[in-house]
């Protein structure tokens, strides 16, 4: 779907498409009244099309309610889509049953935001990290314990801490435990939902570096879900900007950050505070008014038109298609910025 560019994606050797998503949709029904009839739907995810190449990092960014977390749960098939297709390694997984999905759980793993609540406090680290082996009945060469200790070492934890409980670790260490568990079965795709946003700045950098090292070592493919645009710029090869369940813009990192085309992307980038006082005055600011509209009744036409300073009549009536405006750079806008 996108041609190879000379962006950062070229730094690593990228393979063929590992994940292909086509028209992905998830509507949650809303029921009301005496007979609990369906009166509408939360259009959490409404027609996403993108692909992720092997060894690549694609980030989904956007504000709350944009559907990025729902997308993550769809990709890992924690929930079933109401429309569209998800292909993993050439296999359609959109509607696989739980039992058919089980063998594929080895290939797709998820890292969660909150390292505190995603680890069972009553289990030792050994049990937590070793659980995937037992669940998938995987034979390990020197026993599960050895395998777990190798994993702990890999993510920078002391293998001796095998018998400790999650509460004995700091936030960053707990996130490392979560990552070790994720890596146990050598997945092909890791969906990471805000993996560092609960961590302190100095710890955040350690985990970001760890994720990077692991990607290089095991040729992992990441789909990162994040709201911190600075972290996203650092870790991604390509970035998709979402707004109210749709992709507004998708491009390789440099292109997106240097030449954003969609007005929403421009506004998002200009809203991020920069740790540099000298930029305080010279920065060009675009302040969006109000809040993100409800995904129950998203605005007609372009969903962003209610907050967009460039909106014209056509934006209210016609939804712009996501089209390639520059090599490897797609945007869904009638009046894109930075367009050649």
């Amino acid at each position: 779907m996108s041609t190879q560019t000379d962006g950062p994606a070229a730094e690593r050797r990228l393979g063929e498409d590992l994940l292909v998503v086509d028209g992905l949709q998830k509507h949650f029904p809303i029921r009301r009244g005496l007979l609990q009839r369906q009166v509408g739907a939360v259009q959490a995810v409404d027609g996403l099309t993108f692909s992720v190449r092997r060894g690549e990092t694609l980030s989904l960014v956007g504000e709350s309610g944009c559907g990025k977390t729902t997308t993550g749960r769809l990709l890992t098939r924690l929930i079933e889509p109401t429309g569209g297709r998800i292909q993993l390694d050439g296999r359609d997984i959109s509607h696989l049953s739980t039992s058919d999905m089980r063998p594929l759980r080895r290939d797709v793993q998820m890292i969660f935001q909150d390292p505190y609540s995603s680890l069972n406090p009553r289990h030792t680290v050994g049990t937590i990290v070793g659980a995937p082996f037992r669940l998938q009945k995987v034979q390990t060469e020197n026993g599960v314990k050895k395998a777990v200790q190798d994993l702990l070492e890999l993510v920078g934890l002391n293998p001796e801490h095998y018998n400790r409980y999650p509460h004995e670790f700091s936030g960053g260490q707990r996130q490392r435990i979560g990552i070790a568990r994720t890596l146990a079965l050598r997945p092909k795709l890791i969906v990471a939902d805000e993996p560092v946003s609960a961590l302190d700045v100095s710890i955040q950098a350690q985990v970001v570096n760890l994720l990077e090292d692991l990607q290089n070592e095991f040729d992992l493919t990441y789909v990162m879900i994040a709201h911190d645009l600075s972290v996203v710029r650092h870790v991604s090869d390509r970035v998709a900007v979402m707004y109210l369940g749709k992709i507004m813009e998708i491009a390789d990192r440099t292109s997106l950050y240097e030449r954003p085309m969609h007005p929403y992307t421009v506004a998002l980038l200009s809203a991020v505070p920069i740790p540099d006082t000298s930029r305080r005055e010279r920065r060009e600011r675009i302040r969006l008014q109000g809040d993100v509209p409800s995904p129950i009744n998203p605005p007609s036409g372009c969903r962003f038109h209610t907050r967009c300073w460039k909106a014209q009549e056509v934006c209210k009536t016609t939804e712009p298609a996501l089209v390639e405006l520059a090599p490897g750079h797609q945007a869904a806008c009638h009046f894109p910025e930075n367009a050649a």
Partner: peptide, 8 residues
């Protein structure tokens, strides 16, 4: 340790 938005 902070990634930066404003530079590559």
């Amino acid at each position: 340790s902070m990634p930066r938005l404003d530079r590559e």
